[in-house]
Design a protein around this nucleic acid. Structure first.
Lengths: 138, 138
DNA sequence: GCTTGACTTAGACAAGGTCCATTGTAGGAT
DNA sequence: ATCCTACAATGGACCTTGTCTAAGTCAAGC
């Protein structure tokens, strides 16, 4: 994650304790925290950090392309630090567990011109749904 | 849409002016209204209808499988009456316009076992993003 | 045309998120 | 090393979306 911090500094990001903590919290694979979860973990490391700062920082990370906003859950947005390898998501319909997945195939090519309605299509987002091992045995 | 009303009555739904109005508002192709938009249009036809009733009715339509909940936009849920032909969505990243689309191919088959993490996968939801004709010329 | 249980209503409430005026501080200039 | 200042953080008000509840209303069977 020091990578991320370096990259950010390179882009003229002003480095503060708060921003560092938010970036640290978002480290890892299969990490998909809500803003509130990020805030809770950030508070553990830096008790004075405010909710607004967490929201601001997350928003900045998203617009810098370092973090993805995911909305698999229909309530809160989730933040996914794995922005540099394109991927999709697999979500447990019951408990909400999320995995990053990499389907084969090229879904963009699967949308015929006749179904594009004149749009310039640039991206697809796929959300697989099912039951995770835990929830399917229960 | 009289179809829908008939089907609902057949399932023991008590028919009220409010429910009829909500069902009417949701008629059509490429319709993806938020709950508030549904409410606004319903009020135009039946001024006394309350927000809670619209939410209740939408929720019932969803659990009866007559209407789909879509969350292409990261804010409010949208309601899609086209529940009987499976389809995906194409969204304008700028103005939010939504079209129903039918890609070829079978995305479920594109998720290898090694990427399933033991889940029982049952469904995929695809959201294509791009710019609509209007927004891409601007 | 009565009855009754399902439906509707208004408004309070909750969660997630945004905004803003004020205070604090990173990092360049001296 | 210290000072400055533009940018960042704070906390609290506020907004939007959605849910809940208690009381009143009404569709539909008798």
């Amino acid at each position: 994650m020091s990578d991320l911090l370096g990259r950010l500094r390179g882009r003229g990001w002003r480095m503060t304790a708060q921003r560092r903590v938010v970036a640290e919290v978002l480290d890892g694979e299969h990490v998909h925290l809500t803003a509130d979860e990020v805030h809770a973990r950030a508070v553990a490391k830096l008790p004075e950090i405010s909710r607004a700062t967490v929201y601001n920082t997350l928003g900045e990370l998203v617009s810098l392309g370092e973090v993805l906003e995911v909305s698999t859950d229909k309530r809160a947005k989730r933040y996914d630090p794995n922005a540099h390898r394109p991927h999709h998501h697999l979500v447990c319909a019951q408990c909400g567990a999320i995995r990053d997945v990499h389907p084969t195939g090229n879904p963009l090519a699967d949308l015929p011109d006749s179904e594009r309605f004149g749009f310039t299509v640039s991206d697809v987002e796929m959300t697989y749904r099912g039951l995770c091992p835990n929830c399917s045995t229960a």
